[in-house]
Structure formats: structure tokens, C-alpha cells
């Protein structure tokens, strides 16, 4: 800067600079807090579940298959006199030696029967609370999104 520029700078600095209305910072920060909330919400939306949809489908299919199998192999359902295709299949399945499996089942049920009823109640209550929490969290986030938009 030369001398003329420095002199002119002194003059210009005499002018008081314009300022916005009172509460400007508050207004800006309100908008920024809303912006930050949206950004946080977007992060939650990016959440990937630990168990994928595919795994869930396989698990449910396996469970349904087990239930069907248990129903079909119960003594009431085997009253058909003439062996059909289904009974042939189930008959061959019955021939499988299931003793070790039933022994294991008895051991496991024996273990569970020793657990007091109160423990089951606590577990059920915890699961209900966890589900409720999940539901409320989702509800709160969708409400926040509506308010911001």
C-alpha cells in the first residue's frame, strides 16, 4: 500500500459498518440447529441392520419348515390306513434315528424347566420395553422430519 492508499484507508475506517438487526445470531443459530438435526436424522437413516433381509427370510423359512414338520410328524396325523406319498416320505423320515436329538431336546427342556417363572417374565418385559423404545424412537424422528420440512 502506498501513502495515498494508507491515507484513504484511514478515511474509510471512519465509516461505521452496517449491522444486521438485533438477534441476528439467534436467528442464524436456530436455522443451523435445525440443519444439524436434519443431518443427524440422515445419519440414522443410513443405519444398516445387523441381520440382512435375506438372512431373515432364510431363518423364517427354516422356522416354518420345522413347525410344519412337527405338525406332520405328530401321532394324530398318522391315522391314514393306506400309505400315500406323504406318509411314505414321513415314514422314511421316521425311520431316521432321532434318539440323540430327542435326548438333547430333553436335556435342554430340563434346563429351561429349572429356570424360575420370574426370569421369563423379566425377559418378556424387557423385550416389550425394547420394542416400545424402538417404535417411539422411529415415531419421534419422523415427527421431527415433518416439523423441519
Amino acid at each position: 500500500m502506498n501513502k495515498i492508499d494508507k491515507q484513504f484507508e484511514q478515511l474509510i475506517k471512519e465509516i461505521s459498518i452496517d449491522s444486521p438487526s438485533k438477534g441476528f445470531t439467534l436467528k442464524v443459530m436456530d436455522r443451523i440447529q435445525a440443519e444439524a438435526a436434519v443431518q443427524k436424522h440422515t445419519l440414522l437413516e443410513d443405519y444398516q441392520p445387523v441381520i440382512s433381509k435375506r438372512t431373515w427370510i432364510i431363518l423364517i423359512a427354516a422356522f416354518v419348515f420345522m413347525v410344519v414338520y412337527v405338525i406332520m410328524s405328530s401321532p394324530e396325523s398318522s391315522t391314514v390306513k393306506e400309505p400315500g406319498l406323504w406318509s411314505t416320505v414321513t415314514g422314511s423320515l421316521q425311520k431316521i434315528d432321532t434318539k440323540p436329538v430327542s435326548n438333547l431336546w430333553q436335556t435342554v427342556t430340563g434346563m429351561f424347566s429349572s429356570i424360575p417363572t420370574m426370569a421369563y417374565l423379566i425377559l418378556t418385559a424387557s423385550l416389550v420395553l425394547w420394542t416400545l423404545d424402538l417404535f417411539l424412537t422411529r415415531f419421534r424422528h419422523s415427527a421431527a422430519k415433518v416439523q423441519i420440512s
Binding site: I17, D18, S19, P20, F24, T25, V28, M29, I32
Partner: peptide
């Protein structure tokens, strides 16, 4: 913490 930056530069930005 962003409010400190708003306070500091609001006059010039507005001007």
C-alpha cells in the same frame, strides 16, 4: 461454537 463465527463476521457479511 458456530455462533462465535456468526458474531465475528455478521456485520461484514451483512454490509
Amino acid at each position: 461454537a458456530f455462533s462465535a463465527l456468526v458474531d465475528r463476521y455478521q456485520n461484514l457479511v451483512y454490509s
